[in-house]
Design a protein around this nucleic acid. Structure first.
Lengths: 344, 344
DNA sequence: CTGAAAGCGCTTACAG
DNA sequence: CTGAAAGCGCTTACAG
């Protein structure tokens, strides 16, 4: 392996000088700089980043912390798209990305603490969080730089990049109300996830504002899996007074919903209208095409890296949380105006 | 930051001893070991992995090299599933994962050479490869450990984990032939990708064996995107003598195919039968449900990590390439027996 | 503008 | 079984 010393020897200068050339130190003569650079090129020299890290105490690496059941994650286009945003900006800024996942549940801090104490990364991106997440407490206690993609109730001052998820669900629900629906259900995600919680609030808020009831039978909590949507429908559709429209926490879950409805021979949107979240590429291809809230997934990832790098550079963070705008994409699955009941 | 020296001082031993305790050196007395370990716990000591890396010349990190247009990648469940397999086994074996992507096209070796020369990783996982991939040449020249998920013609001795992709396409095509189809098209991927090439061979082999023609009009090359499938159909369906069945390189592309056919008011499988590859979770939910070759994506990723770790440990590699088994999952999209033409 | 020296936090022959 | 010393490849005050 070629080191800085080899270059120094061949260039007839000291290792310190070579180091300075590499880091573009201002007070190096153009002449030596050129000479050293040429020799580095000739020998195909590449600095040992590990050695550099040790002394500079910086790694130019960002850690990506995947939430526990990474199993589920990748069944979801959402995380792919999020990663895409993260990779794009990190690569652009010459940062490396270290992928970690929570391991054993007996010690949820194991992975993160290895990362932080082992000085493997300069900062951490948290993809989603539980409602009371020990990882955030840990990171705050360690004063280790991080950004949460999502929202934390317990840690309102944590740097966050998120949608306004009360509003996203409000918009989805309101859209259904505007179509004339009065019995609107909600297929939610795991209740300990802040996202589920926020969207539940938005759903309830929209109903309350319209003077509608949120029948507890019309609310089901599940996972971010197709099966959850499937199961929710077996439940809903057997109710004597079933909803005529539903809000679904995630497109993937909505696919399960559509499948169940097809099997049960219900028509969407005629028998039941559906709106979901994320607007993944496939929503458009579902049958019928799925109305979905576009949450700007790519931008969420991209922006999170921006915010984290800003924190690392010591710049003051002006806004927190950073809110990524969303918008409802209306497609066939919710395009059915509920006829007014005969007023007799 | 707490270092080995702090521990040594408090335990009344030398730093060397602490280091030996950490690495479970055999010739350390249980007594000192216990004492040192307790102090490490009390101070919540975690070894600096960077420093350890510098001297041990090993990082316990695997690099994941994403192919160039990472943009496309994550629009595809396939890569998510592959990553899932990789993460699972790497985490289980206590390896970290560094995510890199090829950057500027002006120097395709830039990213990989940083990784290799910077000693950031112990080995590299290559996700897919071009037919003549300079990255593989580079890695071989540097004698740097790597595993290719996929196949390289130009480098037959490179460690590879792959499906038998000639056979996968043969099976898909043969299935359509068995259904009575004689005019079978192929919607392929980018021609410079080995995968596309192999599947083309399998497709042609199956046709040849059945004495069928592969009309060049029935073959379209594109990207791994839905748009490609969509466009292919506008082409195919306007042909005077159009195929009655098609093999599609990837489920994602097949979704585009299905969408185009729906818009053009063709029925699947009655007007045209479809078989594709990867068997992602959504294939089952397509309308109609998509026949697809399950290539064991998760296992592909999982196994690649196993093989790479085996190489790193110096174990001899007995089989190369490692072939992951595949199987055809028949669903509605290809369940239509072509009636025999009237024999007059 | 450049060099000698100390040091980042660890490991590992060597010696005892 | 344990310690002192040298060293991994780099950076950076300090001095000139």
């Amino acid at each position: 392996m070629i080191t800085i010393k080899d270059i120094a020897k061949l260039a007839g200068v000291s290792p310190s000088t070579v180091s300075r050339v590499i880091s573009n130190h201002p007070r190096i003569s153009t002449k030596t700089s050129l000479k050293v650079k040429q020799i580095m090129k000739e020998l195909n020299y590449h600095p040992n980043i590990i050695a550099k890290s040790l002394v500079s105490r910086t790694t130019h690496t960002l850690g990506i912390m995947l939430p526990r059941p990474a199993e589920e994650l990748f069944q979801n286009y959402f995380f792919g798209e999020l990663l895409r945003g993260i990779i794009t900006h990190a690569t652009r800024m010459n940062y490396e990305l270290l992928l970690t996942t929570e391991t054993s549940s007996d010690n949820e801090l194991h992975a993160i603490s290895r990362l932080v104490h082992g000085r493997r990364v300069d900062g951490i991106l948290l993809l989603g969080s539980k409602r009371d997440d020990p990882i955030i407490s840990f990171l705050e206690a360690e004063k280790f730089p991080f950004v949460l993609i999502g929202r934390s109730e317990a840690h309102p001052n944590a740097p966050m990049v998120d949608n306004d998820n009360v509003q996203t669900a409000y918009d989805a629900t309101h859209h259904l109300i505007a179509q004339g629906h009065t019995r609107i259900g909600f297929v939610s995600g795991p209740p300990d996830i802040t996202l589920s919680h926020d969207r539940m609030l938005g759903y309830q808020k929209a109903l309350a504002q319209a003077g509608l009831d949120a029948d507890s039978d019309w609310i089901v909590e599940g996972e971010f899996l197709q099966e959850s949507g499937f199961r929710a429908m077996s439940l809903f559709m057997s109710l004597p007074d079933r909803p005529t429209a539903i809000v679904v926490i995630d497109d993937n879950v909505a696919f399960g919903v559509l499948r169940a409805l097809a099997e049960l021979h219900y028509l969407v949107p005629e028998d039941i209208s559906v709106v979901s979240f994320n607007n993944i590429a496939l929503s458009e291809l579902a049958s019928p095409p799925l109305s979905s809230i576009d949450i700007g997934t790519y931008q969420l990832g991209y922006t999170a890296v921006q915010v984290l790098l800003k924190i690392l550079s010591g710049e003051p963070q002006l806004h927190n949380p950073v809110i990524i705008p969303h918008r409802l994409i209306v497609r066939e699955s919710s395009l059915f105006s509920k006829p007014k009941p005969p007023s007799d």
